[in-house]
Nucleic acid binder design. Sequence first.
DNA 1: GCCTACATCTTGGTATACCATCAGACAACG
DNA 2: CGTTGTCTGATGGTATACCAAGATGTAGGC
Lengths: 230, 230
Amino acid sequence: MTVLMKDNAENLAALRIETPPATLREIALDRMRRAIIGGLFQPGERLVERTLCEQLGVSRSVIREVIRHLEAEGLVEMLAKQGPIVATLDWDDARQIYEIRAALESTAVADCAKVAGPEIKAALRKAMSELERTSRQNSPVGVLDATTEFYKIVFEAGGNNIAWEIVSRLNSRISRLRVMTLSTSNRMASGPSQIRKIFTAIDANNPDAAAAACRAHIEAAAEIAKTILA
Amino acid sequence: MTVLMKDNAENLAALRIETPPATLREIALDRMRRAIIGGLFQPGERLVERTLCEQLGVSRSVIREVIRHLEAEGLVEMLAKQGPIVATLDWDDARQIYEIRAALESTAVADCAKVAGPEIKAALRKAMSELERTSRQNSPVGVLDATTEFYKIVFEAGGNNIAWEIVSRLNSRISRLRVMTLSTSNRMASGPSQIRKIFTAIDANNPDAAAAACRAHIEAAAEIAKTILA
DNA sequence: GCCTACATCTTGGTATACCATCAGACAACG
DNA sequence: CGTTGTCTGATGGTATACCAAGATGTAGGC
């Protein structure tokens, strides 16, 4: 392939009209998910369809399909003859989620540490600095987003996109817990330092150290969650 | 509590009208899922809503909500401006799924081996015999169901119901692969023997041996899947 | 013969209205 | 005070209508 042809291909690719992914349903799904994750709806709270229609300004069809999606995600539970409620979470569920996260994330960071090249490390470094910035600003949601971004890079770099799907879904189920653990005073400081350990190990292409740091990080989070839930 | 009272309580419990879990949507969901898993709809095939309405004899609302659910489960993909299609599966996806299964199932069997008491062992033994029976009868779907039952007991005994949810969902995505691997001649014989190894280790309350046997079992399955997909 | 332009069909996306059922609240009644 | 009937609200299920966008087909002009 000549340089000219490559340019041509790039130009053609640039021509493509990026389709607005904005189907009303997807917007509503995103809003609902954020509302639940952000604690706007309390666990166990009933989700009344027609009320949601007014609140989101969409029709019942949309709301119902969104609820089906959230139900499959585990964020919403259906009570027979009573309709949907926000899923509740007890310590036994949370315990399992932390265990699964530990398993999946530790292998993901190890995979990432094996293959990480300069550009991945740069991306991780950027996410790290964002994480530390939001941490200094005492912004729990900012820290959450930055942490998510960090892990997203890790999983994708290691070719673990399916595991990332699973972890994302699990995280949304314990998101309220995560915000609460972040609000724990000493956590706001210790979290970034633990993730920095993971980053350092990846930067040194040391899979074992990365996995160990990851496990330590999650176990610490689980420990705080336990005190909150139990 | 006297014996009489216990009888009374049991009688009252028997009085209860078991609520038909049969909301039309759930039936349709189950049918659709089985149809996809069973290969009635080919991967990549378009799922035309109005056609499905006729085929299932339900309205579009129901069909659409079912599709939302299946979409969240990963069995159906939405193509922008073209509607839903049956999700496709390449080797990279399957590879990851087998890896995650290996991680989750091996810890699950180890957990089960740690705590398994007589009643759990009896249940597993029953599932084992069912598995070997269907295997002798050369019934791939029977083997699949029996294997599922075996693992279900394992996960629940070890208190890993969340992991079971995840594994179930992953399994439905590779179900066609599983049927195909089962159809591989030597697999029909080797599968049960490998699971018997797991059972033996659990029966001996030997977590390490159980985990190792489980990993071997999944790796063998992945190997066959690879030859099919690649 | 080929290309264009228009009409039509199909499909998904959305909104709305209707019905039957059931749960919870509440008032009437003994 | 407890039982009973009623009413309202929420839900599941369904049907229908409208719109927008792609696909298809077809006729007309070059």
